[in-house]
Amino acid sequence: MRVTEGDVTVEVPEQADAGVGENVFFNPVQELNRDLTVAVLRALREDERSESSNGASGDGGAASRESDRDGDRTPRYLDANAASGIRGVRAAAEGYEATCCDVDPDAVELARENLAGNDLEGRVVHRDANALMHEETFDVVDVDPFGTPIPFADAAFRGASRLVCITATDTAPLCGAHFESGVRHYSTVPRNTEYHAEMGLRVLISALVRTAARYDLAAEPVFSHATKHYARTYLRLESGARAANALVDELGYVDHCEHCLFREATPGLIADPLDWCPECGEAIQTAGPIWLGRTCDPEFTEAVRDAVDDGMGTAERARDLCETVAGELDEPTHYDQHRLCKRWGVGAVAMDEFIERLRAAGYSASRTHYGGTTFKTDADVTEIRAVAVED
C-alpha cells in the first residue's frame, strides 16, 4: 500500500487493524502527529539559523554538549522506532541527516526501501535503539514507541543534544485509569479525573523532566499536545544542574475533590495532601508529582504553526491545534463547560460567549485543545458556577 504524506510517498504493509498491536508498521491515525513533527523540525531549523545569525547559540548549556556544532552543519535526526521509516524519510526530506533505527529486520528493510524510493539519503540501522542512543549523539531524538516511552527515556536524553520528541500511547496508565501501571511506569501517582487528558500529559512531562535531571539536563517542554489516544511532547535541552533544578521546581501535586470539584495545586516534591476537602468536607484525591508549569513555549508553538504548509494532510487541524495550545493558560487543570452545566442543571452557552463571561467577571480564561467545550481559568469552581448561572 502506497501512502503519501507531505512531500514523500512510502510503502507500508496493508493492515486491517492499522495502529493496533505491537507489530504495526504504520498508523494512519498518527498523520497529525507526523505533520506537526515536520513543522517542529522546520521551526527548530529557523530558530538555529536565527541564533547563528545573532552570533550566539541562545541554547545555554545545550550547545556545550556539542561544542563543534555550527549553523552550517546538517543537523542529525534519529527516528528511534522507525517501523516503516516514515518519520525518518520526512525528516530527510526536510534536509536533516536522518537515521532510522529498529530491532525488526523487516522494518529495517522497509525503511531502507522508503528512503531510496524517495531519492533521499539516510542511514538505516538494525540495532536496539537504547544501545545506539548511548553510543551516538543526535541533534533531535524522536521516540515514538508502542505504549510507554519510559524504557527509552534515559538513552534518549543521553543521545540528544538539542531536542527530544516523545510520544506515549498508554493513555490509561498516564491518566490514572490503570493506576498501578501508571505508578510503575511513571514513578508518580496519577488520578483519573475530569481533566484526564491533561493529567496524562503532565504525568508524562513530569517523568521526563525527572529523568533528564538525573543527568544534570533541563528538558523544557516547548510544544505539547494530547490528541485522542496519545500524548506528545517536545523537550528542548539545556545542560547544567542549575537549569535542571529550575525545572524540578516546576513539579508538584494537585489535590482534587470529586464531589464538589475543588482543586488546588501545590509546588514541591514533598507531598502534604489534604485529608478532606475544605469546601465540602468530602475525601480528597492527590496526584503527583506532576508537571505544573507551561506545557509549551508560546513563541515556539506559533513558529510551529507558521511552519505548517497546505500540502500537509492535516494542515487545518494542525494550525488550529497550535493556535489553541499557544493561547492556553498555564493552569495545571481544565474544566468541561457542558459537564459542569449538566451537573448544575443549567443550560450551556457557546464557548466563546462563556469565555468572555469569565473575562468580564475579572478572571483569566482560555479555551484548551483537549476538546471543544474545555477551558482553563483562574476562577475556582464556585466562581465558575456564578458565571454559568447568570441570566
Score class of each variant (00 low, 15 high):
L292I: 06
R305F: 00
A307V: 03
G327F: 01
G281W: 06
C280Y: 05
D320S: 13
V381A: 07
G293K: 02
G347S: 15
E279C: 00
C322P: 08
T368Q: 03
A307L: 05
L321K: 07
D336L: 00
L329E: 09
E356L: 11
G327C: 04
R305Y: 00
Y335K: 00
L292H: 01
A350L: 12
R294D: 13
A360T: 14
G313H: 10
G362E: 13
G327W: 02
H334V: 06
V389D: 08
G327P: 01
I384F: 08
L321Y: 11
D310I: 09
V349Y: 12
G281D: 14
G362T: 08
T373M: 04
D380C: 07
G293F: 04
A348I: 13
E299G: 06
R319I: 01
G311E: 07
Y363H: 15
T374L: 00
A283S: 15
E356K: 14
R339T: 10
I284G: 04
F300Q: 09
C296M: 06
R343D: 05
I355F: 03
L292W: 01
R343H: 08
D309S: 10
K376W: 02
R305D: 09
E323Q: 13
K342L: 14
A315I: 00
W344S: 10
G327N: 12
G347C: 10
V349M: 14
G293W: 06
T324Y: 05
G327E: 09
T295F: 01
M351F: 01
H334N: 12
R367Q: 07
A348Y: 15
G362Y: 09
I384W: 05
E323W: 02
E328F: 00
S366P: 04
E279F: 01
L292M: 07
E383T: 02
G281Y: 10
P289V: 03
V308D: 03
H369D: 11
C280K: 04
E282N: 15
Q285Y: 11
S364G: 14
H338T: 09
A283L: 11
A287I: 02
Y363A: 07
T301E: 05
A379K: 08
D306F: 00
L292S: 04
T314S: 10
M312G: 07
R359L: 05
T377S: 07
W291L: 07
R294W: 08
Y370D: 02
F375Q: 00
E328L: 04
Y335E: 02
A360V: 13
E353G: 14
E331V: 15
D306G: 05
E353Y: 12
R385H: 11
D378E: 07
E383S: 11
F375S: 00
T286W: 07
E279H: 02
A283Q: 12
